Amino acid sequence: MYRVVVIGGGWSGCAAAVAARKAGASVVLIEKTDLLLGLGNVGGIMRNNGRFTAAEENIALGASELFQITDSCSRHRNVDFPGHKHASLYDVMKVEPQVRRLLKDIGVEIHIMTRVIDVVTEMAELPEEKLKKYIKSLIVTNGTGLGQKNMEVQTIEGDVFIECTGSTGPYSLRQ
């Protein structure tokens, strides 16, 4: 069984974790904050404009359960307001715990408050190629940040790594 490590627990990371688990992989999801769904928790808007297409794509790619959750937690559906058409407004306080429960129920290992700080690479000889470098594992810290004393450092190995850190960008060492 392949071990898939998903970095980033926003909508795309959660969708990747669901799809990988359905495909039979062992899945680890790493999120640097204390909540899943990232910026999806900010406004609680789903299925509007570009998100409509993204939702339909994720459903087609195997993560329909995530959108069943948002639909069930929507207070308003098919709302048109300036800049948004056919939007659903969901209750952000209800969605994240249900998504977290879904991931745990299907067997996804979730690491929250965990930051990727480095990668471990190896060289491998592949057919028809000379040597190729590949990622073997991630080095992560648990807790609130790099400034902590006695910070726990851990290595997470995987066969496949999916980067889903999204629009908020990488962790900055200047914090």
Rank of each mutant, 00 (worst) to 15 (best):
Asp118Asn: 15
His84Arg: 14
Thr53Asp: 10
Ala16Val: 07
Met1Gln: 13
Gly50Phe: 01
Arg174Ala: 12
Pro82Leu: 09
Asp91Cys: 05
Asp34Arg: 14
Phe67His: 09
Met123Asp: 11
Leu37His: 07
Gln68Tyr: 08
Ser64Asn: 09
Thr114Phe: 10
Arg115Ile: 13
Thr70Asp: 02
Pro127Asn: 09
Gly166Val: 07
Val160Met: 03
Ser26Arg: 15
Lys132Trp: 00
Val108Leu: 06
Ser74Glu: 02
Glu152Val: 15
Gly38Ala: 05
Thr53Met: 07
Ile69Phe: 03
Asp80Ser: 12
Ala16Asn: 04
Lys149Tyr: 03
Ala60Lys: 09
Gly83Arg: 05
Ser64Gly: 11
Asp80Lys: 01
Lys133Cys: 06
Phe52Tyr: 12
Ser172Lys: 12
Glu109Asp: 14
Tyr90Val: 05
Lys136Gln: 14
Gly38Pro: 05
Leu103Gln: 01
Leu138Ala: 06
Glu128Tyr: 13
Leu138Lys: 02
Asn58Leu: 08
Ser137Met: 04
Asp71Leu: 08
Val79Pro: 04
Ala16Ser: 14
Leu39Asp: 01
Ser26Ala: 15
Gln175Arg: 15
Ala20Pro: 01
Arg21Cys: 12
Gln148Ile: 04
Lys104Arg: 13
Asn49Glu: 15
Val116Trp: 03
Gly38Val: 03
Lys136Ala: 11
Asp71His: 10
Glu129Asp: 13
Arg115Pro: 01
Thr121Trp: 11
Val6Ala: 01
Ile69Lys: 08
Val18Thr: 07
Ala63Trp: 11
Arg47Ile: 00
His86Val: 08
Gly143Arg: 09
Ser74Tyr: 02
Lys136Asp: 13
Val92His: 04
Lys130Asp: 13
Met151Trp: 06
Val92Tyr: 00
